[in-house]
Design a binder for these strands. Structure first.
Length: 108
DNA sequence: GTGTTGACAATCA
DNA sequence: CTGATTGCCAACA
């Protein structure tokens, strides 16, 4: 059993608090917690993200995490996340979330 | 204790 | 829009 660190617990808690159709950037989560940095948030999701909605956490540009772009796209389409990506999947690239609408500021 | 790496971000060319 | 550079913070060798 993995003992969650306090910081990891907080990050996972915030990620779990993001409603469907909305997303937060790594830096936003870090700034929301007021601790660590975007890289630490990414590391936490890389280790403990297996039980959290990691696809709701993206880069500041709206680009999803590496290695899961396709899976993230599936979740975005399923949750109705405002996307600004190519209508075709084949390359499965250039997948970006419309942060202008999908950006979540915690309590809104 | 030092140096490198990383699921990042902002700025410049 | 893409690519390169710098800054930030923590983990890792």
């Amino acid at each position: 059993m993995s003992t969650l660190d306090d910081y990891s617990s907080q990050v996972l808690d915030v990620v779990d608090g993001i409603p469907p159709g909305q997303v937060m950037s790594y830096g936003d989560v870090a700034e929301y917690l007021g601790a660590g940095g975007p890289r630490q948030v990414g590391r936490v999701l890389a280790v403990h993200g297996g039980g959290a909605a990691w696809w709701r956490v993206t880069h500041a540009d709206g680009t999803p995490a590496p290695g899961h772009e396709r899976l993230a796209l599936e979740h975005y389409l399923a949750e109705g996340t405002p996307l600004r990506a190519a209508p075709h999947i084949p390359p499965s690239r250039q997948v970006r979330v419309d942060m202008r609408k999908a950006r979540w500021a915690g309590n809104r």
